[in-house]
Design a protein around this nucleic acid. Sequence first.
DNA 1: ACTAAACAGGATCATTATATCCTGTTTAGG
DNA 2: CCTAAACAGGATATAATGATCCTGTTTAGT
Lengths: 154, 154
Amino acid sequence: MFSQTVEYALRAVVYLASQAPEARTTDQIAAATRMADKRPYLAKVLQGLARKGLVVTQRGVGGGVSLARPPERVTILDVVNAVEPVRRITTCPLGLAAHGARLCPLHKRMDDALAHVERALGGTTLAEVLAEPTASVPLCDGPVGRVALPAAPG
Amino acid sequence: MFSQTVEYALRAVVYLASQAPEARTTDQIAAATRMADKRPYLAKVLQGLARKGLVVTQRGVGGGVSLARPPERVTILDVVNAVEPVRRITTCPLGLAAHGARLCPLHKRMDDALAHVERALGGTTLAEVLAEPTASVPLCDGPVGRVALPAAPG
DNA sequence: ACTAAACAGGATCATTATATCCTGTTTAGG
DNA sequence: CCTAAACAGGATATAATGATCCTGTTTAGT
């Protein structure tokens, strides 16, 4: 249902949110999100997020990737849509003229399901994901907040 | 979000429901669901549905494909799950021991979205799709019920 | 039996998604 | 201005999906 790339993107962005507004290198993100292998692919995913304006990148020494907006203003849906947009069904997939605007009951139900997904994912920001009081902190094995990382400034 | 194959399967099954309990040939199904091209692929999709027990097939002259259960007892979700199961998130995708049963807020939200999909698609049967009073009849250009087809018995 | 209708299933091909590699460009700092 | 850190981007490899083809098997009817 959700592609692997969506999962990678979400992990990366949640991590960046936890470190906001600091930038982190692809290597750091890969380590923190358990993608030490597949680091090259993560780089591509981040490139895509940068093109969509969700993150900003800075080249050169001391550079890295950071969230383009504060975690309070990025929803899970924003991330999903940046990678693999939720495509609502607006016209009849069969191309039937009579179904133009008014979807048939079948496709109406399919679209309803997509609407539910949009609603569920659009209702939560990265800040809320991180703030939720729970034993399971995103990306972390224990109830830790900021992990100590090499070369992590302030 | 939903694969092309899911769309094909749903169209085929809705058509078979409209013709139930009669069997229809792959050619008839392809024509009725606007898949006259891609008929070979439709055959594969139907094979898959047969393996999952959603439809039954009959070889030889006068054979074809028919619904295995009455339309009242087949939900949209049944069809989706037969083709591309909705995979709920039950364990942490990062393999973090601490997240074993208790998903982190991120994956909890993802799973919530999947739960919504299951609920939306599982709540409607093929019979309901066909019975819904609307101007847009599934698969049909106009408000027609049973279409006259070549070699269609009673 | 023979024939034609119809599905079954393996092999193949095309396209997209996933993943990696290599080279280039930007940039901070000595 | 030289170097090392970092991202950019094109080219390539691999896997999964979508789609087609061909041959075989089942079956009703003659």
